[in-house]
């Protein structure tokens, strides 16, 4: 029942904006502020919704998280990292990195003794965190358009697809024990709050100090997400070259 509920919620999160996107006409190019963001108007509305959510729920919860003793914060962060290890294992296998898959499995099993709250593998190599978005990148899938989803936030078609697949294929969702069901339910909100709390100043800096925080987040996200790609780097060089050659 919990699994069906989760799939329903996921469908709601992903499906609703897709319907919105389908219903809204793509604006003319000259009204766009970024060519990779063809649904900017809708994205900005969703972003505003997310900011309201942040104002009233996530930021206050993150403040509470920051009041916890350091050890409590570390344990919660460990927990969220532990719950993502099955995805690391599955996707490392799909990318042919069996060593990383083995490390992920080892860490998941060992730290599972404490439900992930305590890192018992401090001295062992940490597995490279990876997910289905990376797997799609490994097989050279295109990023697609930039899309902001309610609650989930910014990403591309590829990264959002990766998140859905990772969520649906996480073995914790299929475990039938009450403990696994509980972990699965609390995992997402705990992740959101710990991430927000661990990056409190950084996020607030962008949220409150930007001239246009939507545009700044999008710029950072897209630059970072495309950083390893030759074409993106060539495009960046073209921007600098064309400026310097025409103005000086």
């Amino acid at each position: 029942m919990m699994t069906y509920m989760r799939i329903f919620m996921m469908g709601l999160i992903v499906g609703a904006p897709m319907c919105l996107l389908a219903g809204c006409a793509t604006p003319p190019y000259d009204e766009l502020t970024e060519s990779r963001d063809p649904y900017e108007k809708t994205n900005r509305n969703v972003y505003a919704f997310n900011m309201t959510l942040d104002d009233f729920i996530v930021e206050p919860a993150a403040r509470g998280y920051r009041q916890l003793p350091d050890q409590g914060q570390v344990m919660l962060t460990n927990f969220t990292q532990w719950t993502s290890l099955p995805s690391t294992t599955v996707n490392s296998s799909m990318q042919g990195d069996m060593e990383n898959a083995a490390l992920g499995t080892f860490e998941f099993l060992i730290n599972g003794l404490t439900l992930g709250f305590v890192d018992l593998t401090d001295d062992v190599d940490t597995p490279r965190s990876t997910n289905f978005d990376d797997t799609l990148a490994y097989y050279q899938a295109d990023h697609g358009s930039y899309i902001v989803l309610p609650v989930i936030g910014p990403g591309t078609v590829r990264s959002h697809t990766g998140w859905v697949v990772d969520s649906l294929t996480n073995p914790l969702h299929f475990a039938s024990t009450p403990a696994a069901a509980n972990i699965s339910v609390v995992n997402t909100p705990v992740r959101i709050v710990t991430f927000r709390g661990n990056n409190f100043e950084y996020i607030n800096d962008i949220k409150y100090q930007s001239l246009d925080s939507y545009a700044r987040v999008r710029s950072i996200y897209l630059q970072y997400d495309h950083a390893d790609e030759n074409q993106a780097n060539e495009d960046k060089e073209d921007v600098f070259d064309s400026f310097i050659e025409t103005t000086e």
Binding site: N131, D133, G153, R191, N198, I203, D205, I206, I220
Partner: peptide, 21 residues
């Protein structure tokens, strides 16, 4: 806004936010 980061690639996005700051 950054919630995706916590759901998908927490370490990677965490580092880029810190780096940006």
């Amino acid at each position: 806004m950054f919630l995706i980061a916590s759901l998908k690639q927490p370490n990677r996005l965490m580092s880029v936010l810190r780096i940006y700051h």
